[in-house]
């Protein structure tokens, strides 16, 4: 069984292989990019892999896109967006060894068509490529990448992506594919692998996050890392402001010019409380440590840098229950 360098820590944010999953639109790529940047900054050669998504990570990091072949886009940080076709080529080459043979057969239009009708082959070969990079060696037999972060597809497809290796291993007849699938499944299920579940504090993203947590426990056999609550709104008002706002609301009925301010404050409070309910539901339902990332004004690389720093700040409090889980900053990891 191939595992990552044995010296690597299993602390969630430092795990050798980190898979970032969650509903579409919750900021998976932003979180994955920040995780990878942080690891790179700490001196670990890190590979950030995107699974068949548009070039989002490249845009987040403000670097040139890097498709199918890992490129060092920042010091210690390699980026690779995997495509089904590119992964298939690499995977086939690993087995066939000769590019000429590969080109002759796999570049054949008819063969390409035929391979498309093999279900899950795209996910399978992409996972195969991910696995290949996880055991790839540099010149001095050092592992080429000390850390890998996989930006997984959105929920439904993530489940396929993460379960395909075990499925293929279980159903495929003995042979190259079964062996390869077994190794991939072992990597996903390894003690040095963690799956982080990203959600924003809203109804459906939290529901899907909880679905992922359940799937991880019940059938994927992947170890859970952190629950990451992204875009958590900071509270503008303190509990002690309550009575003042109540009185202002009464005044607003008489003074129309005051009314919009009070309405805006009330709406903010309502949104904030609602989001806190969802955050709490995620925390209780997932039973994994929670990391809150506040809603931040930055965009692009600045946003990634900021989140990477926030991740650093909270790491030490991993085992202690944070005071209130409030979102004023990344206050720490909330143990359930």
């Amino acid at each position: 069984m191939h595992t990552f360098p044995p010296e690597s820590s299993t602390a969630p944010l430092d795990a050798a292989l980190q898979i970032v999953a969650g509903k579409g639109g919750v900021g998976r790529t932003v979180i994955a990019s920040a995780l990878a940047l942080r690891l790179a900054r700490r001196g670990h050669p890190t590979l950030l892999l995107e699974v068949n998504a548009p070039d989002n990570a490249a845009a987040c990091l403000e670097v040139a896109p890097s498709v199918d072949h890992p490129t060092e886009v920042l010091p210690n940080l390699w980026l690779c967006r995997m495509t089904p076709a590119g992964s298939m080529a690499e995977y086939a080459l690993m087995i066939l060894r000769f590019r000429a043979l590969y080109s002759l057969v796999f570049d054949n239009r008819l063969v390409r068509y035929m391979l498309r009708s093999i279900p899950s082959l795209a996910e399978f070969t992409m996972l195969g490529k991910a696995w290949f990079h996880s055991v790839e060696r540099a010149a001095e037999d050092e592992p080429k990448y000390a850390r890998m972060v996989i930006d997984a597809p959105a929920t439904g497809h993530a489940l396929t992506f993460l379960s395909v290796a075990r499925t293929v291993h279980d159903v495929a007849p003995a042979g190259t594919m079964k062996t390869a699938a077994g190794r991939m499944a072992d990597t996903i299920e390894a003690p040095t692998t963690r799956m982080h579940v990203v959600a924003v504090p809203e109804e459906m993203p939290v529901n899907e996050g909880l679905d992922l947590v359940r799937a991880a426990r019940e059938r994927l056999h992947v170890r859970l890392g952190l629950g990451i609550l992204n875009q958590r709104l900071a509270p503008v008002f303190e509990p002690s402001d309550g009575p003042v706002l109540d009185r202002l609301e009464v005044d607003a009925a008489l003074h129309r010019e005051l009314e919009p301010y009070v309405r805006c404050a009330r709406r903010h409070q309502a949104r904030w409380m609602l989001q806190e309910q969802h955050a709490e539901r995620f925390r209780r339902g997932s039973q994994i440590p929670l990391l809150s990332i506040p809603l931040l004004p930055e965009r692009g690389r600045a946003l990634i840098e900021r989140i990477a720093l926030l991740m650093d700040g909270c790491e030490v409090s991993n085992s202690s229950r944070a005071s209130d889980g409030g979102p004023g900053g990344a206050r720490g990891v909330d143990e359930p």
């Binding site: 066939l96 043979l101 002759l104 057969v105 063969v111 009708s117 042979g175 190259t176 594919m177």
Partner: peptide, 23 residues
């Protein structure tokens, strides 16, 4: 059947059998 043989090295013979049956 050079093509089929090469693909079989990649997928295994039985998988191709299954594929042929399904199709």
């Amino acid at each position: 059947s050079f093509f089929i043989r090469t693909i079989a090295r990649f997928t295994g013979t039985e998988l191709l059998q299954d594929l042929a049956e399904m199709l």
